[in-house]
Write a protein that binds this DNA or RNA. Structure first.
Length: 571
RNA sequence: GGGCCUGUAGCUCAAUUGGUUAGAGCAGAGCGCUCAUAACGCUUUGGUUGGGGGUUCGAGUCCCUCCGGGCCUACCA
């Protein structure tokens, strides 16, 4: 038994996430968390909403709400959707929590004391109408290079030229359209990541088996150009963790907050503290997960995220923790993902293109989505969602291979023996072969799950289901019943137990369906099989059950076409 | 511009890291079964591994080059 700390990249607060966001972090993290728990490990699975930053302020303003109540409301919306998808967080926190404020300020102070914070005076664009400084990309204007009239202050999307906001012709605020912009000097704190470059480089080099996607992005940032650059960790905003606080090793930072990317990863730790608070536990309860001097020495820490998050998790956040000089637990493995595309293009939150978490649950139960998304997780390259692929995959794998197996076994038993596990008869060579085949495949399944090889795990799970159909076809209890009912009874007893075994093994992927199978089998033994033969004797003769309702209804062509149309346009 | 990833059967993906005859699922074809959600099982068609060149006893895998797709490039997160 090990102790495993799992964090999923924090979903940003400004709206409901699409399936691409889900499959890139929270869903695979949940798969791993469920598996680790099933194997008897002690798991702490943490997620939270990422609530600070300019987009949150703007989204709140658009919604006509104060930013704090907007975030509180959206947090509840996202929490409800997470529950709807069966995401088994031990705690779903908020980066705006008091715990995160305190910890962010604490770590910043430590970094300041360690000489890793530098004050830099720089020029920023201020909008009088908006009453705020504008990040580069919130300034629009005409591109000096190609004449595109909606170029952004960081880059022109038309000609892809990198820009400085002052390069733009006729610059205006992207928020309000205001043109009363002014370049002002402002002072900010920079994290001296460059001072930690060699430390980080050596740390990355010491990791083995990380996805290429993870290490290549980290190395690029470490070695490109002049190497790892210092990074501004404060912003001129109202909503966030205040930079000026009692005990801060700097002055004159009133009215500024920490940059969202500084405080967001810290929320992993703070959310664990929020968990302890919610459980009525003291600080040692969370510290034993995060402080190597307080019990976290034997913790294995795994992070899940989309590739866009990798630089912050491989460099900035470790720089924060290492630079603090305190014994914080660093990540042991970073599982990163490419993007999921939608039917020939990208999912787009701003364009409302694709399927969003709320819409997905309105259309179908979460297990359908979990299965498809996980079995097509973009591990090696970007992958693509199409409704046709989704329909075929779900109908074949879930309805035909697994659902129908459950149906044929339980219904056959009901009609010949009644709704109780039949006794009598003995098993023979074919059953021994089944046990051997299951054992071999289970080992592979376990190995893939341990290694977080998600698509391979899904393939192997499906292959385990197929073994059931193969066995049933060869054993043919419907034939045996005519000449030797005891033989048929033994075969069906095994088959009913096989279904229970599948419910247990499938639970990380399709928890709701597994729970329904177990409920109808009147079984609460979820223990992961150590020995397959033993696991196939859990349901003893005479044990009552009921025939489950259809586990997975097939997706009709009509439904598919309707959804294709409904989700192609704008939300 | 620079960097990284990627291109394998009609479609979605494998291939123990250079090692026998490149494998699965879906789709297609044929046969079987009749317990079951017209489901299941068996057999089978289908590949010049994007093109070209090179290294090697041996290349999907390594090198060069060309072509296509994607991502990142540090003030959105």
């Amino acid at each position: 038994m090990a102790r495993i700390l799992i964090t999923s990249a924090l979903p940003y607060i400004n709206g409901i996430k699409h399936l691409g966001n889900l499959v890139g972090s929270q869903l695979p993290a949940d798969l791993y968390a469920r598996y680790a728990r099933a194997r008897g490990h002690e798991v702490m699975f943490i997620c939270a909403t990422d609530e600070h930053g300019t987009p949150a302020e703007i989204a709140a303003a658009r919604a006509g709400q104060p930013v704090d109540s907007y975030c509180a409301e959206m947090h509840e919306v996202q929490a409800a959707l997470a529950r709807g998808f069966g995401l088994s967080f031990d705690h779903f926190g908020r980066s705006s929590s008091a715990r995160n404020h305190a910890l962010t300020q604490h770590l910043a102070a430590r970094l300041g004391d360690a000489g890793l914070i530098e004050e830099v005076a720089e020029k920023q664009v201020y909008s009088h109408t908006d009453g705020r400084f504008l990040p580069d990309r919130y300034i629009e204007g005409t591109c000096p290079n190609c004449g595109h009239t909606r170029a952004r202050g960081d880059q022109c999307e038309e000609c892809t030229k990198q820009l400085d906001p002052t390069d733009l012709i006729d610059p205006r605020s992207a928020i309000s359209g205001a043109t009363d912009l002014e370049v002002r000097e402002t002072r900010h704190l920079y994290l001296r990541q460059s001072a930690l470059r060699n430390t980080l480089d050596a740390w990355i080099d010491s990791q083995t088996g990380w996805p290429v996607l993870t290490t290549s992005i980290a190395r690029k940032w470490l070695h490109d150009g002049n190497g790892l650059q210092d990074r501004g960790i404060t912003r001129d905003l109202d909503w966030g963790v205040p930079v000026q606080f009692e005990g801060a090793p700097w002055t004159g930072m009133e009215g500024k907050v920490f940059y969202v990317w500084f405080d967001a990863p810290i929320e992993y730790i703070a959310a664990t503290a929020e968990w302890a608070d919610a459980q009525g536990l003291d600080d040692s309860a969370w510290q034993r997960w995060w402080r190597t001097d307080m019990g976290a020495g034997d913790v294995r820490y795994v992070q899940f995220m989309g590739k866009d998050n990798v630089p912050f998790h491989t460099l900035s956040f470790p720089a924060t923790l290492i630079g603090s000089g305190e014994p914080w637990k660093l990540v042991d493995y970073i599982k990163s993902f490419n993007y999921l595309n939608y039917d020939g293009g990208q999912f787009s939150t701003s364009l409302g293109r694709g399927v969003f978490m709320d819409q997905a649950l309105e259309a179908l139960p979460s297990d359908y989505w979990r299965w498809w998304l996980l079995s097509h997780a973009p591990e090696n390259s970007d992958s693509e969602f199409t409704w046709e692929n989704f329909q075929v995959s779900v109908n074949k794998d879930l309805a035909d291979v697994l659902g129908n197996l459950v149906s044929r076994v339980t219904k056959f038993c009901r009609s010949k023996f009644g709704e109780a596990v039949p006794g009598g008869g003995t098993t023979g060579a074919r059953e021994a072969q089944l046990v051997a085949d299951l054992t071999a495949r289970l080992r592979v399944y376990d190995a893939h799950m341990e290694a977080m090889e998600i698509r391979k795990s899904a393939n192997e799970l499906r292959a385990l289901w197929v073994l059931g159909n193969e066995y049933l076809q060869e054993a043919a209890p419907w034939s045996a019943f005519k000449t030797d009912p005891e033989q048929a009874a033994a075969q069906i007893r095994l088959s009913l137990n096989l279904i229970r075994l599948y419910a247990v093994l499938s639970q990380p992927f399709i928890p709701d369906a597994s729970a329904r199978i177990m409920a109808d089998l009147r079984c609460k033994d979820w223990s992961w099989p150590e020995d397959v033969a033993t696991a196939l004797e859990v349901l003893a003769p005479g044990h009552d059950f009921i025939v489950p309702e259809v586990l997975f209804a097939k997706i009709s062509d009509e439904s598919r076409v309707e959804w294709e149309t409904r989700f192609s346009g704008t939300r």
